[in-house]
Amino acid sequence: MVVRSWRHIKERYNLIGVICKNCGTVYFPPREICPKCRRKTKFEEIKLSGRGKVYTYSVVHVAPKDFEKQAPYVIAIIELEEGAKITGQIVDCKPEDVYIGMPVEAVFRRIKEDGDDGVITYGYKFRPIEN
């Protein structure tokens, strides 16, 4: 599973997505073709700002094994400024303070560990933007 983590470092560490120059749609994570343009796809990499708003969220109480220590935690879909939506945790605030429309920004965090001696997966989580 090391390769599976390593392969996505660019996207998960630096929020690199793609923009289709044919239709202007931004995708994260990057994909092979633009579903709207198919073979007319013209992808270029785009560095996403990481800023966006909470589109929806849930407070997870029953967690899978890898996340048990973190429960309860907030999982959310964030609508990024560039238009793409992305799934990640919301941290650095109380679960009850999260609301739809809350401004957030991406932060680099440890996501999970693959057992005691396994790979540590890093990537993005989101935290509220201070007003």
Binding site: S58, V60, F67, I75
Partner: peptide, 15 residues
Amino acid sequence: WEALFGATFPSLYAM
């Protein structure tokens, strides 16, 4: 891009 970040199946429907 969902499960790896801690999204459980119930949490997707919860969202």
